[in-house]
Amino acid sequence: MRMYSASKIKLIVPCMALLLSTALLISVGWGCGKEISVERKRIRLGYLNNDLHQLAFYVAQQKGYFQEEGLEVEVAGVYNSGPEEMGAFQAGALDIGYVGAAPAILAVANGKANVVAVAQANLNGSALVASPASGARSVSDLKGKKVAVPNVGTVQDFLLRKALSEENLTVHDIQEVYMAPPQMLAALSTSSVDACLVWEPFVSQMVTQGWGRIVSLSSDIWEDHPCCLVVAGEEFLREHPDAVDALVRAHQRATAFLQDHSEEALSLAAEFTGLKVDVVDMALSHITYKAEIGVGGLREYAQFLTDQGLAKIVDIEAFLDDFIR
C-alpha cells in the first residue's frame, strides 16, 4: 500500500508547479518566434509531405522567386494526405495549396471545399511496381495477385483499372488492397503484396532498394495524366487576384527551372525530400513538371469519378469551367 506522507506532498507540489511553468514558458516562446512582415503580401500555403510533385514550391521558395514577386509565403501546413489539406481549406486556414487533382476535385464536386485550380504542378509520375518474388513482368501477370493502391478513387486506382482493361482484365481479377504509400514500401519489401501502383518518390525508392521493378510507367498507361495542382481558396482568389497571379508567375519560373533537370534541381530535390540523389534522379525522370493545366486529363478523371459514384458532377464541362481558372 502506498501512502504519501505530508513531506512528500510538500515536495510534489513545487515540482508540479515547476513543470507547468516550464511548459507555459515554452509555449509562450513558441508564439513569439514567428516574425510578422507588413510590407509583403502574406500567403498561407499548404503542401503534402514526402512528395516530389510540389518541388516547384520548394524551388520558388529557395531561389527567392516568391520574394521577387513581392510575396511572403508562409508554410501554414504540411499534410499527410490531400483530404486533410482540403479540410484545412474548408476551415479557412489556407490560401494556396499544392495538392493532388483527386482530393481537390472530390472536395469541390462534393461541395465540401471551395478551391479553384490556378496552375498544374505536374503530370505523370506514378508507376506500377511489382516485387521480384511475384514474377510479374507485365500487367497480365497480375491476375489473382495482391495489388496495393492508395485508396479508392485515386488517380492510381484509375490507372490500375485502365492498365487492367487494356489486357481485358478488371479489378475483380486481382486482389486490390488499400494502403498509404509508406506502408506500401514495407509491404513490398516483405513481398506481402505482389505489386503497387504508387507515385514518386516511392516508385524509385522501391526500385533502388531492389524491392520491386517497374512493370509500367503511368505515362505509358495514360499519357500526360493529371497528378498535382496548385489551387487557391475561392475567397482568397476573389479578394487578392493580383497575389494569385504573382504566385503563379513564381510557380511557372520554378517549373521552367525544373524542366531542365539540372544538377541544382537534383540537389534541391534531395534537400526537399531528404532522399538520396540516385532515388531523386530516377524519380524526377518520371515526373513531368508543367504549369499549364491539362484540361483533357482532368475531364477524363472527373468522368471516372462520376462513373464510380464518388463525385456528384452533373455537367462536367460546366464543372471544369468553374474549377479551372
Binding site: 494526405s81 478513387g153 486490390e176 494502403m179 463525385a311
Partner: peptide, 21 residues
C-alpha cells in the same frame, strides 16, 4: 492501415474521408 483487404470500420472512416463523404 496495414492493408487489411476490403473490410473494416476504420477503412470506411479513412476512405469516405478521402472521397468527402
Amino acid at each position: 492501415m496495414v492493408g487489411v483487404g476490403g473490410r473494416g470500420l476504420g477503412l470506411i472512416i479513412d476512405i469516405s474521408k478521402s472521397t468527402w463523404k
